[in-house]
């Protein structure tokens, strides 16, 4: 089973590399931040797989800490660093802007 876990961990690491493209491209700060959040989730999965593959149960605690603390960075981001340049007045407008930004 060890080779299966390692192969899955490698695949997840490749998806993390793909996520770096979004960090580089953006375009908004929220895109970059969410990519980093996604990395946190991927890291939890990789660490759990490695814990099995390497028979090292201590790595599960590392995954636990990552899962628990992932929210803090994004809370700091929303509370301190991020505020839309121009606050959309209504929800539809906000959605329209989101769609426009993604295009």
């Amino acid at each position: 089973m060890s080779s299966l876990y390692l192969a899955l961990a490698l695949f997840l690491l490749l998806t993390l590399v793909a996520g770096l493209w979004r960090v580089g491209r953006g375009p908004t700060a929220a895109d970059r931040m969410l990519a980093a959040q996604l990395f946190g989730t991927t890291a939890v999965a990789i660490l759990l797989l490695l814990a099995e593959a390497m028979d090292s149960p201590g790595l599960r605690d590392v995954a636990l800490v990552f899962a628990l603390l992932a929210a803090i960075t994004v809370v700091a981001f929303t509370r301190r660093a991020w505020q839309p340049e121009r606050l959309p007045t209504s929800e539809p407008e906000r959605l329209a802007e989101r769609a426009g930004g993604a295009a």
Binding site: A43, L47, L50
Partner: peptide
């Protein structure tokens, strides 16, 4: 994150 995985 990657550094933590390398330590692991």
């Amino acid at each position: 994150l990657v550094l933590a995985m390398i330590w692991a």
